[in-house]
Nucleic acid binder design. Structure first.
Lengths: 353, 353
DNA sequence: ACCTAGTATGCAAACCCTTGCAGCATTTCG
DNA sequence: CGAAATGCTGCAAGGGTTTGCATACTAGGT
């Protein structure tokens, strides 16, 4: 059926070893022989059996990637980066999606780790202890997640959030709400911390934490009414999907963006230029995160003993679009439409829901 | 380092074959032995070496998936389906993206085909002859592409387009424009044919083909002005991304949707409920397409001699949203804003650009 | 007690490639 | 001219598993 090295060797009149060497270390074989072998190999359509090679070398030249949800554009972009960089390096990537289920993550890693040389987990939901344990069983790099023990490609949320806050303050906003993501999400905590840090630096800036919501459009829809009731003039969403949900519900409620409330997302997804109004968003170089993670896995494979590196000089940008504007007198009128027990509500809302 | 079957065998006091059988065909081994082997295997954390297994069986239990662009939500959904069904069947999937480059597709297939048991290509851009040739070299199933020789999961565009047309006609539209995708795209041709067929069945319905555009948001932006100039009261876009572009440019131009022009997309992407106005779209069960393609590959692996099957009873739905409405008097007034050499223009536009 | 049928286990080959080592030939230098 | 060095090539082992076949053993029937 398939043509093997033995077949090529027979036809070319050399030994199997020579065929193998001709492909693996061409400089170790005489030019004339090399040409002959390569020609016959090409002519016969020879492709080395990767299972056999892998059996000897212990390497598969496959990388694994685990994301919570393939349909989420955030992960799609990361995947794009991982796949493209892997391909450049002569690797292919097995992808798997945990359906946002933390317990599946460990199982997936264990299933995959004998198939691949190394793995990348993007935004893993599993607890630290599990992650650390998994890293002991295979070469693992994390994206968008902090860890002392495991190498990570991290996003400097403080820098990104600062960009957003400076922007909002420049527009006159002083009361800013945050619609958070899952409380188990590291980046949610990082963003909340960043917001608190930045807000604390300015005495007149008040941050209202509205708690945790699903990291999807639905989460934004769910949070929108709380935002309105909070009295904030601007809102920062955990991510763009949540921001989409906010925009949608605001429109239903007749709250004008940005005249009544300014909205900022995080991620700057490809879609975010197309919402109405278009969404101001803190852009994360997702594709580059994917690329960087592959570089990291590869270097880890070469130098297994190196201590965990934490790569986080990925540059943010702020994509300013139509969803943010100056605080205007209409803001207050818009908010007067809703029950205004602002104080009590704020207390209530400042804890996670 | 890694624990092998030999190690388990030694500890459990049986032969390697028994270890192998205990895992592969438990019913062929005595209950007591089975339990002993399984226990020690579990205890020692034994995981069969897949390279060695693959070397013998010739199977990798890996499936390949090639899509033109991972960041395109259309393919993200398909990928989700492929990956989930593959996982259920005990397979993992290697994913690769051709960056919309037809010449890369063949190379990718050839690179991958020794690594995988079977492959799925979604919306391949390569010519038929190449595809047929590739199918000769490995087990291949196509999604969203017609082929006589290669098994396909097809989408019954006629049915979907009919749904859209019936809807538009019910709203009073009689002059309907089509903004096409790439002329090399099979589904573009299928949709155009379907539109022509349906339009031809009603004497009073006029179809204006505006030609081929990029299958992205940018394509819709580029086509929008032609749509306005065409005098159509409704427009069907090649896909939702193109429709997003239309909506965006219409808004810029001050053309109201749906009051001036109704817009229908195809694909019903997850985002399409969130545009302003939300987009009426012909929904394709993308995740199911992915699933069905895996089923097909798997059955092909079991019965390699079966003739190519063409699966296309995937049910469409029409998601009616805010971008379509009844033809109103304002339609004409809106269109009178633009130069109205409708006849000549129509002739011109009826060929591909 | 003996034979048969059946069942459970082990043996060993095979899968295809990589690679250390040995061998051979050719060249180089003393 | 002989010996050593160098450059290519082949031999053969070995990697971990699966599986057909042989063997050993059990139990049932007579």
């Amino acid at each position: 059926m398939a043509v093997s090295a033995r077949d090529v060797a027979r036809v070319a009149g050399v030994s199997i070893s020579t065929v193998s060497r001709a492909l693996a270390r061409p400089e170790d074989v005489a030019p004339a022989t090399l040409e002959k072998v390569l020609d016959t190999a090409r002519g016969m359509g020879y492709r080395p059996n990767l299972a056999a090679r892998g059996l000897i070398t212990g390497r598969t030249r496959i990388l694994g990637l685990i994301v919570p949800d393939l349909e989420n554009p955030f992960f799609a972009s990361v995947t794009k980066g991982v796949q493209s960089r892997a391909r450049d390096a002569g690797y292919v990537v097995i992808i798997s999606d945990s359906d946002e289920d933390p317990s599946q993550e460990a199982e997936l890693v264990r299933d995959l780790c004998k198939r691949v040389d190394g793995m990348v987990m993007c935004s893993p939901r599993a607890p630290d202890s599990v992650i650390t344990e998994l890293a002991g069983e295979c070469t693992l790099v994390l994206i968008n997640r902090q860890s002392r023990d495991v190498p990570t490609v991290q996003i400097d949320n403080l820098e990104g959030i600062r960009l957003a806050m400076v922007h909002l303050r420049a527009l006159g906003h002083r009361t800013i709400a945050y619609v958070g993501g899952p409380s188990t999400s590291w980046s949610n905590m990082a963003r909340l911390d960043a917001l608190r840090t930045v807000a604390a630096q300015r005495a007149d800036t008040e941050l209202i934490n509205l708690g945790s919501f699903q990291p999807y459009v639905s989460g934004g829809v769910a949070a929108a009414d709380l935002v309105i009731a909070s009295g904030a003039t601007a809102v920062v969403a955990y991510n763009d999907l949540v921001a989409y949900g906010l925009l949608d519900r605001f429109r239903q409620r007749g709250v004008a963006v940005p005249d009544d409330i300014s909205v900022v997302g995080v991620d700057d997804l490809p879609m975010s230029g197309l919402t109405t109004p278009s969404l101001t968003s803190v852009g994360i170089p997702l594709v580059n995160c994917g690329r960087a993670s592959v570089d990291m896995v590869l270097s880890l494979l070469e130098h297994p003993t190196w201590p965990p590196v934490h790569h986080h000089d990925l540059s943010f940008h702020l994509a300013v679009r139509a969803s943010t504007g100056v605080v205007s007198p209409t803001s207050t009128s818009a908010l007067s439409r809703v029950p205004s027990n602002t104080d009590g509500t704020k207390e209530l809302l400042d804890t996670d829901v």
